[in-house]
Amino acid sequence: MAHQMCTFVLDRLLFAVEVERVQEVIRYQDATPVLTAPDSIAGLINLRGQIVTAIDLRRRIGLREREQDARPMNIVVRAAEGAVSLLVDEIGEVVEVDPESFEPLPETITGSMRTTTSGVYKLEHALLHALDLAATLQISAAPDGHLSKREAD
């Protein structure tokens, strides 16, 4: 049975998350940085009075840093943790994927990419990386006292 995925772009790669997990898509918003938080936490945004944690997906997945002046979009998803915003480069369309076209990640892919991506759908013109939302949100908060990468810099 085909199901719908909301696609987005990260560093020219096509990713997707299940449509029913997406609450809304909002434009770039300045986030308040949370110093001492793990690197992949982009900060906090105000979503109509609700405070939502934004995750820098590029950092989380281990892709290259975004350009300084880039204005990422927020995909607000519903998670067990409440609403969480995912920072992505661009929003794509909603596509129907065929489970038949799904394939787990090749063994050669390791690191954060492996833990956050469940596999790929072979679309006609591209490979669609399926984001494992639950795993993506498993961000081990650096215990206080440990320096995050940013601090050490």
């Binding site: 308040t32 949370v34 110093l35 001492t36 938080a37 936490i41 906090l44 105000n46 009075g49 609700q50 405070i51 939502v52 944690t53 995750i55 067990a80 943790e81 409440g82 969480v84 949100l137 961000i139 908060a141 215990p143 206080d144």
Partner: peptide, 19 residues
């Protein structure tokens, strides 16, 4: 006072957030 999401629970420096 608004609570921080679960993702940030472990940070002892913050008691919450506000708008």
């Amino acid at each position: 006072v608004k609570p921080l999401g679960n993702l940030l629970r472990g940070l002892s420096c913050y008691a919450g957030a506000t708008i």
